[in-house]
Lab assay of single mutants.
Amino acid sequence: DEEIEKWIETLLKRNISLRVNGKDLEIGSEEFKEWVEKFIKEV
């Protein structure tokens, strides 16, 4: 979905790490990609 890709790009540009389930996810890491894929499937 384009919306999500733009959102991810924005996050990448800002180099933010997300806190997911109490863990810091490094943007661009494998864990982050897995989380994004799960997130996309749920939406």
Score class of each variant (00 low, 15 high):
residue 1 D to H: 10
residue 26 E to F: 10
residue 4 I to M: 08
residue 25 L to E: 01
residue 36 V to M: 10
residue 35 W to E: 02
residue 14 R to K: 13
residue 31 E to N: 04
residue 30 E to I: 12
residue 13 K to L: 14
residue 5 E to G: 08
residue 32 F to L: 06
residue 3 E to Y: 13
residue 37 E to H: 13
residue 13 K to E: 12
residue 2 E to C: 15
residue 17 S to V: 12
residue 9 E to V: 06
residue 41 K to A: 07
residue 32 F to P: 00
residue 20 V to C: 15
residue 7 W to N: 00
residue 13 K to M: 09
residue 6 K to N: 04
residue 29 S to L: 15
residue 3 E to I: 09
residue 39 F to Q: 03
residue 15 N to L: 15
residue 41 K to T: 07
residue 42 E to G: 09
residue 37 E to W: 11
residue 10 T to H: 14
residue 32 F to N: 00
residue 29 S to Q: 11
residue 18 L to P: 02
residue 17 S to M: 05
residue 13 K to Q: 07
residue 32 F to R: 00
residue 9 E to T: 05
residue 2 E to K: 13
residue 11 L to K: 01
residue 37 E to T: 13
residue 3 E to H: 07
residue 40 I to C: 13
residue 5 E to Q: 13
residue 35 W to I: 03
residue 12 L to C: 11
residue 18 L to W: 04
residue 16 I to V: 11
residue 4 I to E: 02
residue 36 V to N: 00
residue 33 K to N: 11
residue 43 V to A: 07
residue 7 W to C: 15
residue 7 W to M: 06
residue 12 L to D: 02
residue 37 E to I: 14
residue 10 T to K: 10
residue 7 W to G: 00
residue 29 S to D: 03
residue 21 N to P: 03
residue 22 G to S: 02
residue 30 E to W: 11
residue 25 L to N: 01
residue 30 E to K: 13
residue 30 E to A: 13
residue 1 D to N: 11
residue 24 D to A: 08
residue 29 S to G: 06
residue 22 G to D: 05
residue 4 I to G: 03
residue 14 R to Q: 15
residue 20 V to I: 05
residue 25 L to V: 09
residue 23 K to W: 06
residue 19 R to P: 03
residue 22 G to C: 13
residue 10 T to P: 00
residue 15 N to Y: 14
residue 9 E to W: 07
residue 18 L to N: 01
residue 9 E to Y: 05
residue 10 T to R: 11
residue 31 E to F: 08
residue 6 K to P: 03
residue 39 F to W: 12
residue 25 L to A: 02
residue 28 G to K: 04
residue 42 E to H: 08
residue 15 N to T: 11
residue 14 R to Y: 15
residue 29 S to R: 04
residue 19 R to Q: 09
residue 38 K to Q: 11
residue 10 T to Y: 15
residue 4 I to C: 15
residue 26 E to I: 13
residue 39 F to M: 09
residue 20 V to N: 01
residue 40 I to N: 00
residue 12 L to A: 05
residue 33 K to Y: 13
residue 19 R to V: 13
residue 32 F to K: 00
residue 14 R to M: 15
residue 21 N to Q: 06
residue 9 E to D: 05
residue 43 V to Y: 14
residue 26 E to Q: 11
residue 19 R to T: 10
residue 24 D to V: 13
residue 12 L to Y: 03
residue 20 V to H: 03
residue 29 S to P: 05
residue 19 R to Y: 07
residue 2 E to D: 11
residue 38 K to W: 11
residue 5 E to S: 11
residue 16 I to K: 04
residue 40 I to K: 07
residue 8 I to F: 05
residue 23 K to G: 02
residue 33 K to A: 06
residue 30 E to Q: 14
residue 11 L to G: 00
residue 20 V to Q: 06
residue 27 I to V: 13
residue 34 E to I: 07
residue 38 K to N: 08
residue 21 N to E: 08
residue 21 N to I: 02
residue 12 L to E: 07
residue 20 V to P: 02
residue 3 E to A: 13
residue 2 E to Y: 11
residue 22 G to E: 07
residue 41 K to Y: 04
residue 24 D to L: 14
residue 2 E to F: 09
residue 3 E to C: 15
residue 41 K to L: 06
residue 1 D to W: 15
residue 24 D to Y: 12
residue 7 W to L: 06
residue 43 V to S: 09
residue 18 L to R: 00
residue 40 I to H: 02
residue 36 V to R: 02
residue 27 I to H: 05
residue 18 L to E: 01
residue 11 L to E: 05
residue 5 E to P: 06
residue 2 E to P: 09
residue 35 W to T: 01
residue 40 I to Q: 02
residue 4 I to D: 03
residue 21 N to T: 01
residue 29 S to W: 10
residue 19 R to L: 12
residue 16 I to D: 08
residue 6 K to I: 07
residue 42 E to Q: 10
residue 37 E to R: 13
residue 20 V to L: 11
residue 2 E to G: 08
residue 19 R to H: 11
residue 3 E to F: 10
residue 21 N to H: 03
residue 39 F to E: 01
residue 21 N to V: 02
residue 15 N to A: 14
residue 30 E to M: 12
residue 4 I to T: 04
residue 2 E to H: 10
residue 26 E to T: 06
residue 40 I to M: 09
residue 17 S to E: 04
residue 36 V to C: 15
residue 14 R to S: 15
residue 20 V to E: 03
residue 29 S to N: 02
residue 9 E to M: 10
residue 36 V to L: 13
residue 30 E to C: 12
residue 31 E to C: 10
residue 19 R to M: 05
residue 5 E to I: 14
residue 7 W to Q: 00
residue 8 I to V: 04
residue 3 E to M: 10
residue 38 K to F: 08
residue 11 L to T: 01
residue 6 K to H: 12
residue 23 K to H: 07
residue 28 G to M: 08
residue 19 R to F: 05
residue 30 E to H: 10
residue 14 R to D: 15
residue 1 D to K: 14
residue 25 L to D: 02
residue 34 E to G: 09
residue 26 E to D: 12
